Amino acid sequence: MNNELPEIKEPEEAEKVALQVTNLDFSKYIAVGGSFTAGFTDGALFIKGQENSFPNILAGKFAMANGGAFNQPLMLDNIGGLINGSDILNEPRFYFDGEAPTRLDKTPTTQVGVIAQGANDFHNYGIPGSKSFHLLAPGYGNPAGLVTNPVTANPYFVRMGPTATFSVIDEAVAKLPTFFTLSEVGGNDVLAYAIAGGAGEDQTGNPDVTTYGENDITDPDTFAQTYSLIVNALTAGGAKGVLTTIPYITSLPYFTSIPYNPLPLDAAKAEAANQGFADYNAGIKAA
């Protein structure tokens, strides 16, 4: 009987595939955009969501070629949300409790107006809630703008500690990017209207964004001009980049869960319905 085992050969080392960057320079990658770029997840911004933001994932891949550091203005917890003193300004994230999405029953620890660790060396300029024209607004990161009426600053941009008079694009360009992503810009120009249940105005034909309400829909021509200015600014120094579009807004749940005008009502039926719900509506208002 032969008890000798056959010789076990060492597996051949797989041939490594050389990375081809085709004249792309990822050494200073800057991401610009809104909530998706920031890593906004489950209705809030929190550390794990930021770590899983698509720019952070891309930066990890870029590092395999010639990519450099990629720093983000991390929140202080995985609760999400913001507090102003002891008051909750932005609510904690959602989680699924087995029956439905539910807000986490915890208090956020990230204070509004407190600069995030690592300020002046951030690479992710994803600003939750920002509309297209906000990215060009001077002072959008000035803490003083958080207490004006109307509010002229964004608390997430304030956390990044920008120059008080700079816009988001000013800050991004000042970092001298060699490569950039510009993602989902324009989504909030329509989404805010939907989230508010249509409680806003369609500003088509009005280029004066200073007259817009928080939930208004941006004039299409104004958006086009704004987008061009943003792209021109980001590419002025020779940087290359990727522009991404936004999902079909009308496919989002805000537009599909409850169809617009689902009941065919003429004027007479609408009046009858209003009268029928008069007592109910009065009770709601009184409460």
Rank of each mutant, 00 (worst) to 15 (best):
F36M: 11
A268I: 01
L74Q: 03
N281W: 03
T163M: 10
M64R: 11
G186T: 00
V17A: 13
V158F: 07
N154A: 12
S130F: 09
S27Q: 06
G129Q: 06
A282R: 07
G139T: 03
I246G: 13
Y29I: 06
K61T: 01
T210D: 15
I127V: 14
Q203W: 10
I47F: 08
A153G: 05
F54H: 14
G33W: 00
A144I: 01
G186H: 02
Q117H: 08
I230C: 13
T22V: 02
L74H: 05
S251A: 15
N120L: 12
P262D: 08
Y95L: 09
V21M: 13
G187A: 14
A164N: 09
Y280T: 13
L265R: 06
F223H: 13
V158D: 00
R103F: 05
P177R: 15
A278R: 01
G118M: 07
D97P: 04
L252H: 11
L74T: 00
Y227G: 11
E171T: 07
T244Q: 14
P220K: 02
A44R: 04
G238D: 08
L136G: 10
V185G: 14
V114E: 15
A137F: 03
A236F: 10
F54N: 14
I88R: 01
F157G: 14
F277S: 12
I115R: 04
P220F: 02
F277N: 09
N84A: 13
G49Q: 03
I115P: 07
L5H: 12
T211K: 13
L182H: 15
I115T: 11
G126V: 01
L229P: 01
P128K: 02
G39R: 01
N142P: 00
S53A: 13
L104I: 01
D105N: 12
A44Q: 03
S86V: 02
R103G: 03
T245N: 15
I83A: 15
N154D: 13
A282I: 00
A119L: 05
G118T: 03
G98D: 11
D97M: 04
P101Y: 08
L24T: 05
Y227H: 12
R159W: 03
A153Y: 02
D77P: 03
I195P: 01
Y260I: 01
E99A: 13
T110I: 08
S228P: 04
G283R: 07
L136F: 06
T107A: 14
T204M: 06
V242F: 12
G129T: 01
G198P: 05
A137R: 09
A199D: 15
D97Y: 06
A196Y: 07
D221F: 02
D221G: 06
Y280G: 12
N215V: 00
V112W: 06
T245G: 15
G126R: 01
N188E: 09
N142M: 06
T244W: 02
N281Y: 08
T256D: 09
N78E: 12
G118W: 04
E13R: 02
G161W: 02
G85I: 00
I57W: 11
E10W: 02
G129F: 05
Y95Q: 07
F277K: 04
N78Y: 10
N281F: 09
N23T: 01
P207L: 00
L263D: 10
